[in-house]
């Protein structure tokens, strides 16, 4: 029982990252109908920004000799918040400059998101190379920082990440339900033409959606970096799990995508822990299989069937 509990605890941090990415993907798809495949790379790029802010001027920085702008090293939490702010600007810029002019053509728009994916990957590789770097956690991370519950260890770090993500996504839900901006966002996702007719500035709302999605991705990247380290390919695996989790929500329900994130992390940990021939790498394959089975059995994900089929 204690082993089961331990594995459940272990899945919390990863689950938060998957859930955050899934919510970000769902938000963009729901509002624009575009699958943002650059979501993972945007999060990876933001993590490097957080790394620069947290470590100060680094000898590895190759693009600019003027690193005085960064100043001294920031605390990790401040660096992550700074990276979230910068990412939101990048997200809004991406929507305004790259996506909006071609948003009428979904193939071109998905191609453009892949262009952003490659561009960010190339930039990071040329700036920092392919080496693994370390960004600490904003939460206590020593061996002593844990609670022992039922023979299992619950790390402060994991709890901190999970609670932060739940709080942020809760705030997002409040923003959507209780504010005018949220109401406008819901109106745009529900009926774009109707929103235009009642005077909502749809383009601005969409830009806000992209900015929020980029911010959530950046937060996920910054928080999980303390667990998985910073590499140019750090988000590939997370993106697949995030996409799978978003599928559980029919790509349109942030709440179900959020639940899906934790569900996939739980499955990943349990399969890796209890099935002898499944190591940590192969769990990705199982996620893929689960995804295919879900699409076979219930194509709409966990969403009500009628709602999903109306979206075709």
């Amino acid at each position: 029982m204690s082993l089961f509990l331990q594995r459940t605890f272990d899945s919390l941090a990863n689950g938060s990252a998957y859930a955050a990415l899934a919510v970000a993907i769902s938000m963009v798809f729901r509002s624009t109908g575009i699958l943002n495949l650059a979501q993972g790379q945007l999060a990876m790029f933001s993590t490097y920004i957080a790394l620069v802010l947290a470590t100060g001027p680094s000898p590895y920085m190759k693009f600019s000799s003027n690193t005085d702008l960064i100043g001294a090293a920031w605390p990790v939490w401040a660096a992550i918040l700074g990276a979230v702010a910068i990412s939101m600007v990048i997200g809004a810029f991406t929507e305004r400059v790259i996506i909006r002019p071609i948003s009428a053509d979904p193939v071109a728009a998905v191609g453009a998101t892949l262009g952003v994916y490659l561009l960010l990957g190339a930039f990071v590789r040329k700036q920092w190379g392919g080496r693994t770097m370390f960004l600490g956690s904003p939460f206590p991370q020593t061996v002593e920082d844990r609670w022992d519950i039922g023979g299992a260890r619950l790390w402060h770090d994991s709890v901190g990440i999970t609670l932060t993500m739940i709080a942020v996504l809760g705030l997002l839900a409040v923003l959507q339900r209780r504010t005018k901006a949220g109401l406008a966002f819901r109106a745009v996702t529900s009926n774009r033409t109707g929103s235009l007719l009642v005077g909502i500035r749809v383009s601005r709302v969409l830009m806000l959606g992209w900015a929020l999605a980029a911010g959530i991705g950046a937060l996920a990247g910054g928080l999980i970096a303390g667990e998985i380290n910073v590499r140019p390919d750090m988000m590939g695996r997370l993106l697949v799990f995030g996409l799978a989790a978003a599928t559980l929500g029919g790509l349109r329900s942030p709440v179900l995508a959020f639940v899906g994130g934790y569900l996939f992390a739980f499955l990943e940990t349990m399969l890796g822990g209890y099935v002898s021939f499944v190591d940590s790498q192969v769990t990705l394959v199982w996620a893929l299989l689960v995804l295919i089975i879900v699409l076979f059995v219930r194509p709409s994900g966990l969403m009500p069937r009628t709602e999903a089929w109306q979206q075709r």
């Binding site: 002019p101 453009a112 262009g115 490659l118 990957g121 190339a122 040329k126």
Partner: peptide, 19 residues
């Protein structure tokens, strides 16, 4: 770099030919 060349190609295709 190869990544930049492919990214530029994708973006140019998206803008100039609508995909």
């Amino acid at each position: 770099s190869e990544g930049f060349i492919y990214a530029a190609l994708l973006l140019a295709t998206a803008y100039l030919t609508k995909g």
